[in-house]
Design a protein around this nucleic acid. Structure first.
Lengths: 148, 148
DNA sequence: TCGAATCTTCAGAGAACTTTGAAGACTGCG
DNA sequence: CGCAGTCTTCAAAGTTCTCTGAAGATTCGA
């Protein structure tokens, strides 16, 4: 591994802690740290020394959540991939889905326990908190996009 | 499993998706959904049908991140635990640490690639985004606390 | 339409993580 | 001071998840 790879692996580790799968995180880091504008699946597999199968799976996942994009490469048999503009804001929005799930879990709980029980009161606080985040986080991200 | 347990398990699942370990999430959900004010380790083990060892580990983790608290119970041999006021804001703050790690990973990358390379420019955008979150998220949480 | 290069899928091997259960430590009561 | 009840720790078993590699599908050029 070159000196360049070390911080890339460090980043991949951070992404993993945030819930991303290991190989997916490494592929994303490779696309972030390369000096080229785009990379092919083959190039990524070679530079990370992983199977083409793993690369394929990772690329598929990254494209589906909007963190990278497939770049049309006329006259080439290979698919080219590129780290996407504003990908970080996209990633944040993804995580925001979890906020929604938490709010819904609280709501569901209240429906069963009732509003006036001890559990109901705890759940109401939870629901209010995640409701607040669900309303405020998108604005925060939008503000970033505008500010940039 | 009673009807009450179902939404509790659903919540536990959501917490797991957010990175919490399974048993830890289930224990937290048990403390959230109970009608009692506090629960003992034994009560939790029995209601979830898991080993006392798992409960012990989970409780230790939850106390250490400030989501629950040990309640002094005079005249009782058992330890009592309670879901903590404002726990959700605490949980959010925990996750905020990840933002810090991401920012630092970007910084580290820039230090190696230089500011004027293609990778350096991508990393700078990343660093700026997480820097922004790192500054704004605490304010968002404080605002919630005040508003409550 | 055929062939070569590249990508995708998937079953199985292996690694990593969870959970348990038993042994030991601690606490407070008698 | 000893005992009963409760909690904690840790090695081992079980389970889950990840990664690979080979076979199949797809795409482009001739």
């Amino acid at each position: 591994m070159s000196a360049l790879s070390d911080p890339a692996e460090h980043l991949a580790l951070a992404l993993t802690q945030g819930g991303m799968q290991r190989m997916t995180a490494r592929v994303l880091a490779a696309l972030l740290f390369t000096e080229q504008d785009t990379l092919t699946a083959g190039e990524i597999a070679e530079s990370l020394t992983i199977s083409s199968g793993s690369v394929s799976t990772a690329l598929k996942a990254l494209v589906s959540v909007g963190l990278i994009e497939k770049v049309p490469a006329p006259g080439s048999r290979r698919e080219h991939f590129r780290f996407r503009e504003g990908a970080w804001a996209t990633l944040m929005s993804e995580q925001n889905q979890l906020v929604k799930v938490m709010r819904e879990a609280a709501e569901q709980g209240i429906a069963v326990t009732g509003r006036d029980s001890a559990a109901g009161r705890r759940l109401a606080e939870m629901r209010d908190f995640y409701d607040y985040l669900w309303r405020e986080l998108p604005a925060l991200i939008d503000h970033w996009k505008a500010h940039r």
